[in-house]
Amino acid sequence: MRHLDTESLGMLIAIVDTGGFTAAAERVGRTQSAVSARIAQLEDNLGVRLLERSRRGISLTETGERLVAHARRLLAYESEALADLKGGTPEGSVRVGMPDDYVDAYFTPTIARFAAAYPRVEISIRADLSKHIEPEVDRGHIDVALLTRDSARPTGELIKREKLLWLAARGYRPERNSPLPLALFPTGCRARPHIASSLDKAGLSWRVACTSSSQGGIHAAIETGLCITALPECAAPPDWRRLGPAEGLPPLPDIEVALFLAPAASSAARRLADMLRAALAMPVVEAA
């Protein structure tokens, strides 16, 4: 009877996550040649090619993609079983994803509590647009994610509804300009269509004066006093002006924040998810 070698599977996952054999070898504490030999042996045992090597780098074959999905679940179950038998706290790593404007508001208060409770768990954070992170959760590349729901295709577990606010720096009146100058996250941001639609329905002309993929970039643009923005209430700096009908701006719809877990989420990932649920608790939680 043939069995899958979990150590080789771990090496394969390390190659996928790090993008190459050298970085993967450093992660697993082996030499590059040893990792290469184990992957070659795994391919030989299975009778299939798992990786494609080209000048552009390394990528998974279709079979490799399927095996990695299984491998992540197997290793997660193995880790959970070992932790249960040892009677200890979770170990390993948890990969977290969320938009940049959620990190300080939602994750910073939780990460200190989680690190104190589970000091042997390594946390890595990816800040990116929700539409980019969501498929990575499905593929098992991200373990836990807090994302803005796609209103056209709501998925994940609804955790919180957030108000979108019009904001400007104190001491400036950029909302008086026409067209209205905006600082926004890039195209693909799930709040951006709501912002544009609200302005269009109100018959207001507007233009994008600044685009930034980071919260810091948006803040810098607003502090110049040249434009306004719309952010979730949780991410609104307390010293910025809140704008609304008195300034001639239309109301904005709420956005929905959802929790996503990878198919083979480890016990550490699930415990972090529990902490996030508690921190962002809302009266009604729906599952989709």
Results as ranks from 00 to 15, higher is better:
residue 12 L to D: 10
residue 13 I to F: 02
residue 7 E to M: 02
residue 34 A to W: 09
residue 40 A to P: 00
residue 29 G to K: 04
residue 31 T to R: 11
residue 27 R to W: 03
residue 40 A to W: 04
residue 31 T to N: 12
residue 26 E to N: 11
residue 29 G to H: 03
residue 16 V to R: 15
residue 7 E to V: 12
residue 39 I to Y: 02
residue 10 G to Q: 01
residue 35 V to L: 14
residue 11 M to H: 03
residue 24 A to N: 07
residue 16 V to P: 05
residue 23 A to R: 10
residue 8 S to R: 08
residue 21 F to Q: 12
residue 34 A to Q: 11
residue 14 A to E: 01
residue 37 A to R: 14
residue 10 G to V: 02
residue 26 E to V: 10
residue 33 S to P: 00
residue 13 I to Q: 04
residue 13 I to Y: 01
residue 15 I to Q: 07
residue 37 A to H: 11
residue 21 F to G: 01
residue 39 I to G: 06
residue 48 V to T: 11
residue 25 A to I: 05
residue 8 S to I: 01
residue 28 V to F: 03
residue 22 T to F: 03
residue 13 I to H: 00
residue 8 S to V: 00
residue 24 A to I: 08
residue 27 R to M: 08
residue 30 R to I: 04
residue 35 V to Q: 09
residue 8 S to T: 09
residue 42 L to T: 10
residue 47 G to L: 06
residue 31 T to S: 15
residue 48 V to P: 02
residue 35 V to R: 05
residue 9 L to E: 04
residue 26 E to F: 07
residue 13 I to T: 08
residue 10 G to Y: 00
residue 41 Q to C: 05
residue 23 A to Y: 01
residue 41 Q to H: 10
residue 38 R to F: 04
residue 30 R to E: 08
residue 11 M to F: 02
residue 30 R to L: 13
residue 27 R to K: 14
residue 39 I to W: 05
residue 14 A to F: 03
residue 7 E to D: 13
residue 8 S to D: 12
residue 16 V to S: 14
residue 11 M to Q: 14
residue 37 A to F: 07
residue 32 Q to Y: 02
residue 25 A to K: 03
residue 41 Q to D: 14
residue 35 V to P: 03
residue 18 T to H: 06
residue 47 G to V: 07
residue 42 L to C: 13
residue 13 I to C: 09
residue 18 T to N: 05
residue 49 R to F: 04
residue 32 Q to W: 00
residue 24 A to Q: 09
residue 41 Q to M: 08
residue 24 A to E: 05
residue 35 V to H: 08
residue 7 E to S: 10
residue 39 I to R: 06
residue 37 A to S: 13
residue 19 G to A: 03
residue 8 S to A: 15
residue 21 F to K: 03
residue 27 R to L: 13
residue 43 E to W: 10
residue 43 E to K: 14
residue 45 N to W: 02
residue 42 L to G: 11
residue 9 L to I: 04
residue 10 G to K: 01
residue 12 L to W: 11
residue 8 S to M: 11
residue 16 V to H: 14
residue 46 L to A: 08
residue 16 V to Y: 08
residue 8 S to G: 00
residue 19 G to K: 08
residue 39 I to F: 07
residue 9 L to N: 07
residue 42 L to S: 08
residue 25 A to E: 03
residue 7 E to F: 09
